[in-house]
Nucleic acid binder design. Structure first.
Lengths: 164, 164
DNA sequence: GATAATTGGTCAACATGGCTGACATAAAAC
DNA sequence: GTTTTATGTCAGCCATGTTGACCAATTATC
């Protein structure tokens, strides 16, 4: 990947630029999750709980298998956090009307409150970053992030976008 | 991206847009680290080893305390991975010339090879995403990511940029 | 030159959240 | 009526974060 060419359009692909992206991605993700982690720690929960609460809040009535597909973890891993969330009253499971094998997932009032609080701190951070960078930058940001996704993740997201 | 906005400039700050960012960040970070994780697993290493190798490669001769400051973890956590990396011959520690308490960190040849391999797969992904999105988008991407950082992280990065 | 501070390391114990493998039950589908 | 699907559970392993206590070598300070 020599790319010494002193002019030409692909100059931004230099190794330095790529490393900059790699590092920014690491630091930004870490800081972006930090605040929520603190709130969760108060509640004796971790990031895994957050993800479950977040996506159930996003897709009320989703099936367990849907959540598993989104998170891409084993059902044993999910089960650990899901059962504590149900026990502690953040999530309720309702038997599916059509298919009674399904346990459709919903946030309780308590769950809705926590989800809102967590999404608010993360949303604030994004709102500030977005406002500061401007609408054009936001577009570019989303475009690049989409390009970093695995093909499967991308099609998964696309499918979701259509069902709304 | 519906983009219906009939009027008003700050419309992109709506909750949907923020949630889109939150989710993209989660999925992109996960997928972005996935490939490297696979390579590391072959070597019986994890992400923590990767971070150490990466930053030592980036700042040869750095002190242990510098690495700790960058990673923002405890020395006990770092010690665990650092000592295996030294034992397995990826990193060497040289006593500081001026201050003999310091153990300056360097990659070995073996370490350099592994670092290059890991950075290459991540760099490829970024290069593809960058190429696809265009230079303007890359600028926006970096701008937004910087806006997501904690103030301390930002000043830390700035300081580093100056020392180069 | 004695004392204090810095740099780095170590032992032990604990929590979180991934993983595999094996197995169980209820409901639906064929 | 058998098979498949959706979900859950037990048991154990691993990686990587944490806290707390303590130690040695070296440097800096009074």
């Amino acid at each position: 990947m020599a790319d010494i060419k002193p002019f030409g359009k692909a100059l931004f692909l230099r190794e330095e630029e790529l490393r900059r992206g790699i590092e920014l991605m690491y630091f930004a993700y870490r800081d972006f999750t930090g605040e929520a982690d603190s709130i969760l720690a108060e509640q004796d929960m971790g990031r895994a709980h957050h993800r479950a609460i977040y996506f159930v809040g996003r897709h009320p009535g989703m099936r367990v298998s849907d959540l598993l597909a989104i998170l891409n973890i084993t059902k044993q891993s999910l089960s650990r956090v899901l059962s504590t969330l149900v026990t502690d009253g953040y999530i309720i499971q309702k038997t599916g009307a059509g298919d009674r094998r399904q346990r459709l997932l919903y946030l309780t009032e308590k769950g809705i409150v926590l989800e809102a609080r967590l999404t608010e701190v993360q949303g604030r951070r994004f709102a500030a970053a977005y406002r500061n960078a401007g609408a054009k930058a936001v577009e570019g940001f989303q475009h690049v992030l989409q390009g970093l996704l695995d093909a499967e993740t991308r099609s998964q997201i696309d499918r979701q976008d259509q069902n709304e």
